[in-house]
Write a protein that binds this DNA or RNA. Structure first.
Lengths: 349, 349
DNA sequence: GACCAAAACTTGATCGTTCAAATTGCTGCT
DNA sequence: AGCAGCAATTTGAACGATCAAGTTTTGGTC
């Protein structure tokens, strides 16, 4: 087979074969409704015959739409939490391609570098919208994007705003408090009344939100339990928990631990096993492969739902193009309720 | 601040400000060498002043290059192994943007669907090259891509070809055998002579390659050990290993286990602990967060090196554009040597 | 059959860049 | 001075699609 690099067919070529004009071919592709049935069939056949595919670049140049969404890949932190974002990116890619959109990923080590990268993508017309992840207290990116007038959604609430629901931009997030509340309620029912909290130091964000869920569920049940705080590091967390179980004689006065992350849950589980309390109910958050492997129950964030929500906000529930920013329509929000994945504790007795 | 959507500046605008022609501006951007120093400075200043950024679409239309690389995101399998590919995608994105390339990800559930997606990207001129991951025995994608005449690299050898090094396409891979050999040698020196293999059923690919490393290191040392095989599933693997340790009275006749994956290593570690052999040296493969969390030694694949290798093959060691396919230059290969990450076994006594 | 409105289709212009070819300016040599 | 040769710069055309504004066809009504 000769490997001839023939010129790719264009609308013009298709038009010639189908005996119509350029524009009619274009219409068959973009607004089939306005083309007569018989003509459409003829054009479609010509398209198949020539194996025609529209040139993305030409279309993009003319329409000023790229049909691409930019997504930041957070720096690989070497920990457990990265898995969640990867699932999110994955789901976003699948949903996006179902709606005729592509996903363009980029990386940056700092918010400043990220804005530089994003700026090039935006001004170069390479993306129609962006999804920013991991928003934090005082995040400069959201304001910058708003000012740039680019449609975007953040995965993560705008923490620290005066009124979260009056936020100027759209966001999707997981309702952490609902997740930890579910975990706490389940623990109270299945393990006993003495349910502790194992979390991060106060951060005005995700961590506090999750802790609130535990707190409220405990109050509602008229119960109370100890609180431990440590950074998201397995080794440090394990040491802390080992010490705590030993020192306070806490070993036998604890029925369960609700944890802010799977990292801490793993640490707590290992520390408990060291102390001869393999039976201690430890519940994680994120449902990462680690929790699965160890058989620990964990709160599942459903990044797939988050991704779908992000696209709905950008494109409307059924739309096929990114809706332009319109200061009239207010920003919207999606809060996904997570779900507790219960695992068989018998597995690791 | 009024939110005026002013027309973005074009080469023409820059040219006017700098008092030169379109083409000279273009030259400053693409071949600065042929522009006189003083002129270049003037143009660069005009660019800064207007905050000009070239339109990706227009450039792409004219040059027939998109400066984008397509990468498949494998379906999220819910397991541990996905982490490795995510690190690879991540590293690829970073390296690519250093070389002025973007990364466009896409997803597909089957090879057929993948070829469909890729076909649209290729014919639409959206990507200049592709990276395919997870090649398997009899993979239809590589031949198809070769026929499509698109530059590509596979992460993973063309398993099952007659002569791997005569392969028609470029690939990058990790030398699994070197990794397991290192693990085995280390185990022989630090744990004892009775080192077993815990792997997958024969697959004519990755798994067999890794087993070979263990086999050869054992032979070289004049040692031998038991072999266990099971699919990559923590629960099933744990059951099998628990049974094995009990039945054969193997419990006290084993010094270490070299495993084909971290999943199996975790399973083996848990089974060993159940049997009162917390001290059993268990070595994993992939160095995922799970191994890190449990403090298990593991073979690190360095997906960062793999990504760099893939780009070198596509663009040359220093190039800034994808080299066109040239049947004269033979396909090339990069084999990355993995590295054993030793962890403190004392941690989890 | 004449007329009109709506539907169906066509034509010229345009998006912003780079290629190819033409032009201008400069240097050194005879 | 004349001119070759090279460096620096400019000009017209093209990439392949869609938009906006035209023209033709269709079908219904009297």
């Amino acid at each position: 087979m000769r490997n001839v690099v023939t010129k790719l067919p264009t609308v013009e070529d298709v038009a010639k074969v189908a005996g119509v004009s350029r524009q009619t071919v274009s219409n068959v592709l973009n607004s089939p409704g306005i083309v007569r049935e018989t003509t459409r069939k003829r054009v479609e056949q010509a398209i198949d015959e020539l194996k025609y595919r529209p040139s993305a670049a030409a279309r993009q140049l003319r329409t000023r739409r790229s049909s691409a969404i930019g997504v930041h890949l957070d720096p690989y932190s070497g920990g457990i939490s990265g898995v969640l974002l990867d699932r999110f990116v994955h789901a976003l890619t699948e949903r996006a391609s179902e709606r005729g959109m592509r996903v363009c990923v980029y990386s940056a080590r700092t918010p400043e570098e990220e804005m530089e990268r994003l700026g090039a993508l935006i001004d170069g017309g390479e993306i129609d919208a962006a999804v920013v992840t991991g928003t934090f207290y005082g995040d400069p990116r959201t304001g910058w994007l708003t000012q740039k007038n680019l449609p975007f959604v953040s995965f993560g609430r705008p923490w620290g705003g005066d009124d979260v629901f009056a936020s100027a931009h759209s966001w999707v997030d997981v309702d952490g408090a609902v997740g930890t509340a579910a975990a706490t309620t389940w623990a109270l029912a299945n393990a006993g009344p003495r349910v502790g909290w194992f979390g991060w130091p106060s951060d005005q964000g995700t961590g506090d939100d999750r802790r609130r869920g535990w707190q409220e569920a405990m109050s509602a049940a008229g119960a109370s339990g100890p609180v431990f705080e440590v950074a998201d590091d397995v080794v440090a967390a394990r040491q802390l928990m080992t010490a705590a179980l030993a020192e306070d004689g806490l070993r036998d006065r604890l029925d369960a631990l609700v944890c802010v992350s799977d990292s801490l849950a793993v640490a707590a589980h290992l520390a408990a096993a060291d102390a001869g309390r393999q039976d201690l109910t430890v519940i994680g958050f994120d449902n990462t492969p680690v929790a699965e492997a160890l058989g620990l129950p964990s709160v599942e964030q459903s990044p797939e739902l988050v991704a779908a929500g992000a696209l709905d906000l950008l494109m409307g529930e059924t739309g096929t193009v990114v809706a332009p920013l319109d200061s009239a329509t207010p920003a919207e929000h999606v809060l996904v309720a997570p779900r507790l994945v219960v695992r068989e504790p018998a597995l690791h007795r």
